[in-house]
Write a protein that binds this DNA or RNA. Structure first.
Lengths: 229, 229
DNA sequence: ACAAATTTAGACACTCTTGTCCAATTCGTC
DNA sequence: GACGAATTGGACAAGAGTGTCTAAATTTGT
């Protein structure tokens, strides 16, 4: 196999497999039990790995925790930006396209495993690790909100929406899309596909009542024309 | 012993003082450290009470925790219903009145000490105590959301708003009022008066763009007409 | 198949926490 | 001031968790 190239830098295959297995189990357990409530034996058992291996890989409990949060932050941000790139810049059916976007956002970034875990860890441990979560704040909301706002601004500029302040509109768009999922989120649950769709649909309709261009007649014809698509 | 009135039921004064002092400290510590991370000595120290006194009053850590959650749930619900009773059923200036209502809701029920603590405990321990928090869910959102929805329905019926589904509108109203406070909430912070006002103002404006009757000129006359009804 | 690296199970010392017990003290009331 | 109830501080056993160490077993690359 790889001859000569990078012998001592790349660790053996199994090594990496254990590593991700530990990360997976650790997110799960830290999320479920909180930092103080989690214990290394639990994580080791869930990862199918001996306790010592965890110490070999990560040094101690706190370093492991930090690694988890960094990892989740990175993956979640990547997911959010990937989803933002599917924003309907040239919508066919504005309502349907925005609903689909809201559903994607929820399904891929907020309700999925990583999103749920990161959210819970931020809520639970945010006050105890200010620097760590400040990092999240800057890299996450600090960059994603403006990115979404920019898309709405473009949509408004193109004449599809009537928006004064795109930053406010972006925040309200997401708040509306999640409005009916709050209680479920609170208790750590995962809304099913139907609830996500419901919430997104109601949210986007209200959003468009507030920010959509009013075209009563054009509306009907447009919807008729788009029914095929 | 104290003769007559209520001899053995009411404990001595100091007793009750200690009790509330313990409850206060325990909410603080449980909220800050999570159940697993909190320890009785911390609570005792913060309450200015000996550890033994806590055991005398509450038996054990878990019973204390349950007592805290019940207490917070009750007080928060009381606060929410009190605030709902200030809903502007006969608004003078709809926008201003709704903004003021949203600010009251946030200030008195969501951003205050009890609200913050209960929210954090639900987020952090909700999955571990399903029955306990199911209780909250029924008594809290299960009763407060419909109550708010009923107020919006009445407002719509009186001709001030154009609402299809009052339940949806109520949830969206609160989501919009909080839209700009989410990140702060996430990290356990308390938004200041200004941020609350900002978020409420933007939220209510959007809410009214979506659900307000459009009456640029008719506004004054209509309100006059309805004042009798 | 061999050698190096990694993983494993178990024992271990250490610390922290819970919950109990008790004697001394303080507090509230008469 | 005296009485009873409540509080206090401290000691205590029992249990759980962290992080280290070891020797044996396993995996990996050559």
């Amino acid at each position: 196999m790889k001859l000569g190239v990078s012998p001592d830098i790349i660790p053996p295959r199994g090594h990496e497999a254990k590593r991700v297995s530990i990360m997976d189990a650790a997110s799960e357990v830290f999320c479920r039990e909180s930092f103080a409530g989690a214990n290394i034996d639990m994580i080791a058992a869930e990862a199918g790995v001996s306790r010592q291996t965890i110490y070999n890989h990560h040094g101690d409990k706190e370093k492991l925790f930090v690694a988890i949060v960094r990892d989740l932050t990175e993956r979640c941000n990547a997911g959010i930006f990937a989803t933002i790139s599917t924003f309907p810049d040239q919508p066919n059916d504005l309502e349907a396209d925005l609903i689909a976007f809201a559903v994607r956002m929820n399904r891929n970034c907020i309700c999925n495993r990583d999103g749920k875990f990161l959210r819970k860890l931020i809520q639970t441990e945010g006050e105890r690790y200010p620097e760590l979560f400040a990092e999240w704040r800057e890299q996450g909301p600090g960059r994603t909100w403006p990115a979404i706002a920019a898309r709405f601004a473009r949509l408004a500029h193109a004449g599809f929406l009537d928006i004064d302040d795109p930053d406010v509109a972006a925040r309200q768009f997401l708040a509306l899309a999640n409005a009916e999922l709050q209680t479920t989120f609170m208790l750590g649950g995962t809304p099913d596909e139907d609830e996500v769709l419901q919430s997104a649909t109601h949210g986007v309709r209200t959003f468009l009542r507030a920010f959509g261009k009013r075209q009563p007649a054009a509306n009907a014809s447009k919807q008729g024309a788009l029914a095929n698509a």
